[in-house]
Design a protein around this nucleic acid. Structure first.
Length: 575
RNA sequence: CGGGGCGUAGCGCAGGCUGGUUUAGCGCGCAUGGUUUGGGACCAUGAGGUCGGAGGUUCGAAUCCUCUCGCCCCGACCA
């Protein structure tokens, strides 16, 4: 392609509306243009990247035997009523009526449609298992679109659905998709982690999120560097730290602490560090009042607490309940003398002693409160939110917290949809059973933003070879110099003839501008043709990343082919 | 949905508080001609605006008031 003919509106100045790095670079490099909030066009260069990403996803999905199909984006309301999600999805779904007043929605996801297809076609266990997928535009009326293409209202997603007759079969599909996802992210050159995620309301067993590490990420991920444990902060486990921080037991002492309600106030007032305090939080779990003890410097993880208790409804107790149960104002609750209340304590309470606790009396705390001697704990568990440097629950390592972007999600759905929609099959014994499903998504457009977040410098994008819009850029420094021009054109034709995706900057622009555009759009390889080519007879090959070397004219196309092949396989040898 | 910011030429901005020498400016870009060409060159000439929209106040509104639309950021929400 000739840059003189390309629709490539690179921007010299920073676009005002863009904040995140990828958003800014995508606008500046002429990849996308906004039509409305969270709605973008892909310009020719951006579209080429998109197509490459899609191709990689297709290859890896096909490799595991998944089959591509294409479903409608326009969904009738009735279908979504079957699962109750028409109401549940609420405002996040674009909804409207057709001319005959029939209600429709634009698909934010396709569980209903795919289940409808399968229930009409698959009748017997002989038709299972199946993995079906599509790459399609999705619509979600996000309350707050953000970071350009990262969180849009219209975006492209690869969504896959598996159908199996047994848990084993469903599990195998899950594993297959999981490995396909790993290969996809590796081929895209991404630094990613598959992290354990909370299955949430859908319940059931496993769920993993594929997170790409990035400063601008919206999600927090907990990672152990020694054993590779990785989990969403919402459910990250914290290991125990044994036997540290103990002193000789001292005598329990009641201390006046007028008006000192928060951990910070009490700790300052008494001159005791906050981890020596125990925070006593009262919750209502399925209507019953419980107390949760965590060190003063830590927060309760309600997701983990809910799971420990096995309760469906968990909420902080209201002021009235707190005052009734502890017999004092809010801020002075403690475990000593709390009658008839189940006390749950974080494991870390075992690690210390001589604690400061609320006295269940307004304006008073106890000093030197000790486990078993002064108060009893009903259940010990891991109920605090993980923090940096916490011990890993599975090895001796310590935890790290990273920001990440969620790019993929794999999910064991079970029979939630098949039961609601009567997607049944006849098993070997002639019994009718609901199909066991899984669903698996990859945010395709978001992925492009994530690649840029991870691969750029102050001058622009650095495309991995696997998704680069063109593999190589030929840049004649001065197009009015006939030697440079002719040599560049010659090389251009030569590379084109070998089916190499090559871009030539044949614009009559100043050298500086051409160099800067080259850095901005991030083509991985380039040939700079200038005075030196004429003087030395050698041609400069340079990587977008910086390294450069010179090669004889005759060797160029062979050399380039080789470089493209090698780079296409890095950073990991996926074949 | 709550809080904050911003809409003036293709892009980035000034002007606005204190209405009138502003015919609405500047830089970049764009067009034409010429000189240039290894890191955003230079000279000359030129085109390009219903100052987001509607209504109001006023002799007079980009500027003041009301409403409205759009975009961005923080939070809530969502996965």
């Amino acid at each position: 392609m000739r840059m003189s003919e390309l629709l490539l509106p690179t921007l010299f100045e920073e676009p005002r509306e863009a904040e995140s790095i990828s958003h800014r670079l995508m606008l500046r490099a002429g990849l996308i243009r906004m039509l409305a909030a969270g709605i973008y066009s892909f310009l020719p260069l951006g579209n080429r990247v998109l197509l490459k990403v899609i191709r990689i996803i297709r290859e890896e999905m096909d490799r595991i035997g998944a089959q591509e199909l294409l479903m409608p984006a326009l969904h009738p309301k009735e279908l979504w009523m079957e699962t109750g999600r028409w109401e549940l999805y609420g405002q996040d779904m674009f909804k409207f009526k057709d001319r005959k007043d029939r209600e429709f929605g634009l698909g934010p996801t396709h569980e209903e449609v795919i289940t409808d297809i399968v229930r009409k076609i698959v009748r017997s266990y002989r038709g299972l298992p199946k993995i079906l997928y599509q790459i399609q535009t999705k619509f979600r009326d996000e309350p707050r679109p953000r970071f350009g293409i990262m969180r849009g209202r219209e975006f492209i997603m690869k969504d896959a659905y598996s159908f199996g007759r047994s848990d084993e079969e469903a599990g195998a599909s899950y594993e297959n998709v999981y490995t396909a996802y790993c290969r996809i992210f590796e081929r895209l050159g991404l630094d990613y982690r598959a992290v354990e995620a909370d299955p949430g309301l859908i319940g059931g067993s496993s769920s993993h999120e594929f997170m790409v590490m990035a400063e601008s990420g919206e999600d927090l991920t907990v990672i152990c560097d020694s054993c590779g444990y990785a989990a969403n902060l919402e459910q990250a486990e914290v290991g125990e730290r044994r036997g540290e921080n103990k002193e000789e037991l001292r005598v329990l002492e009641l201390k006046e602490t007028p008006g000192m309600k928060t951990v910070e106030e009490v700790s300052n007032f008494l001159g005791v560090s906050s981890e020596r305090l125990i925070k006593t939080l009262l919750y209502k779990a399925d209507g019953r009042v419980i107390a949760v003890l965590v060190p003063g410097d830590r927060e309760v993880n309600e997701t983990k607490l809910r799971r420990l208790l096995g309760c469906s409804c968990l909420e902080m107790a209201d002021v009235k309940t707190i005052e009734e149960v502890s017999g004092c104002e809010v801020g002075f609750s403690g475990p000593i003398g709390l009658e008839g209340v189940l006390i749950i304590a974080d494991e870390s309470i075992k690690e210390g002693n001589n604690f400061v606790v609320g006295a269940n009396r307004t304006d008073a705390h106890y000093l030197n409160a000790n486990l078993d001697r002064d108060f009893k704990v009903g259940i010990f568990g891991d109920v605090k939110i993980a923090e940096e440097k916490d011990p890993c629950s599975r090895c001796q390592g310590s935890l790290k917290i990273c920001r990440g972007i969620e790019l993929g999600h794999v999910f064991k759905l079970g029979t939630q949809y098949s039961e609601a929609m009567h997607a049944l099959f006849m098993d070997e014994e002639g019994r009718e059973r609901p199909i066991i499903m899984g669903c698996y998504g990859i945010g395709v457009t978001r992925l492009i933003a994530a690649i840029i977040e991870q691969s750029h410098d102050e001058k622009g994008i650095i495309w991995p070879m696997s998704v680069a819009p063109y593999k190589i850029l030929i840049l004649p420094v001065n197009i009015t110099d006939n030697f440079q021009k002719d040599l560049s054109e010659e090389l251009y034709k030569e590379l084109l003839d070998q089916d190499i995706e090559v871009l030539i900057d044949d614009r009559d622009e100043s050298a500086g501008r051409k160099f800067n555009d080259a850095d901005l759009i991030g083509i991985p390889l380039r040939l700079f043709i200038g005075k030196k080519a004429k003087e030395t007879g050698k041609i400069e090959i340079s990587y977008r990343t910086g390294e450069k070397f010179f090669e004889e004219r005759e060797e160029i196309s062979e050399k380039i082919k080789g470089l493209i092949d090698i780079s296409a396989k890095t950073p990991t040898d996926y074949l």
